[in-house]
């Protein structure tokens, strides 16, 4: 699949965490790619491995406690094999990252301007004056009123929305072609969330950035994404264009999730509940369909022994065969 628009190509990526003496994969054989000018949403509930995937791409895991295998190809480089020194040239410069809680993600003792200028120190040869000019430019770009003043302030002096704008400015500072946004609006109020999402989208369209948007909020996905990958228990279980995914969801997990959203029109109906709980990393079944235990009324032979992705429509992939005859439990609770 050679494609000149392709920014990032992830193949068979595994990230295992050490628990006692064994490694357990939190990201288990994920293959996915990101193109230029695209927002790829990765959606799933807590513990599905979506944030681990993000930190793996950034190479931020402690090598003593994690084992990473597979490929993250960026410009003919496999990031997984890079040494620290080379990786530092990529981080911030080619891939920017935005975190969930902008208050804890900013250093409380550093002025805003120094935090934004920091990536410029390590990736550009700009003089100090030029760096601060760029800082003001960036603050302006992310819609912060009165940049010269804010530049000299500390994180605690800003509101949540403003802090997240600062985080975006940091991520944008070296104009990276890729941005990873890990739950960028979860800690914010809805009206602020809307503003931040609009800003991200605008900046993305302006610069042709590819964004990996990690979120648990299907509403945010529907508003923002071009393509969506749904993760469950460390694996991608469904991947499709955003319209296709919401209008024609196939995997039982995707369908169940969509049914459990309390939405505007479902008013007094009972919400759908998925039986059981997500198994812990250690107890996760490593064989067979991982969702099988949550839909016990589906016969065992509907599942594949080693579930793989099936292309059910152009560019719409679903893991395991159980989607074919899936139905919700009749007269269920």
């Amino acid at each position: 699949m050679e494609n000149e628009n392709q920014l990032l190509d992830i193949n068979h990526l595994h990230t295992g965490f050490r628990i006692k003496d064994d490694f357990y994969d939190a990201v288990d054989d994920v293959s996915i790619s990101l193109e230029k000018n695209e927002i790829l949403a990765i959606v799933g509930e807590s513990g599905c491995g979506k944030s681990t995937l993000a930190t793996t791409i950034m190479g931020l895991h402690d090598p003593n406690k994690t084992k990473v295998a597979g490929e993250v190809i960026y410009q003919d480089l496999n990031l997984v094999d890079l040494n620290e020194e080379l990786y530092n040239k990529i981080r911030g410069n080619d891939i920017g990252m935005i975190f969930q809680d902008p208050l804890s993600a900013l250093n409380p003792l550093m002025r805003i301007q120094d935090q934004i200028a920091e990536s410029l120190i390590f990736h550009t040869k700009l003089s100090k004056e030029k760096r601060y000019e760029r800082v003001l430019e960036l603050l302006e770009q992310v819609g912060i009123p009165n940049p010269p003043r804010v530049a000299k302030q500390y994180p605690h002096e800003l509101s949540g929305g403003m802090r997240q704008r600062v985080m975006i400015a940091i991520a944008l500072s070296c104009k990276p072609p890729i941005i990873i946004a890990d739950e960028p609006t979860t800690a914010l109020d809805v009206t602020i969330q809307a503003q931040i999402l609009d800003l991200l989208k605008e900046l993305q369209e302006e610069n042709g950035t590819g964004i990996i948007l990690i979120t648990h909020d299907l509403g945010v996905v529907a508003e923002m994404a071009d393509r969506v990958a749904v993760m469950y228990a460390g694996q991608v279980v469904e991947e499709a264009e955003v319209g296709e995914l919401f209008n024609n969801p196939k995997h039982p997990y995707t369908r169940s999730l969509l049914n459990s959203i309390p939405q505007m029109d479902s008013e007094n109906d009972e919400l759908h509940v998925i039986d059981g709980v997500v198994p812990s990393l250690v107890k996760l079944p490593r064989k067979g369909c991982r969702f099988a235990a949550r839909i016990p009324w589906i016969a065992a032979e509907e599942h594949e022994e080693n579930p793989v992705m099936h292309e059910v429509a152009p560019n719409h992939f679903v893991r395991c065969t159980c989607y074919k005859n899936f139905h919700f439990e009749e007269g269920g609770e």
Binding site: L60, L106, N107, I170
Partner: peptide
């Protein structure tokens, strides 16, 4: 373990500099 250390690392700041610029000071 703080988030801002992760932010600094994701900016491409080398580990030793992350210590001197962020962790030690704080």
């Amino acid at each position: 373990q703080q988030d801002f250390v992760k932010t600094a690392r994701s900016k491409g700041v080398p580990v030793s500099k992350v210590y001197s610029r962020h962790i030690f000071r704080n």
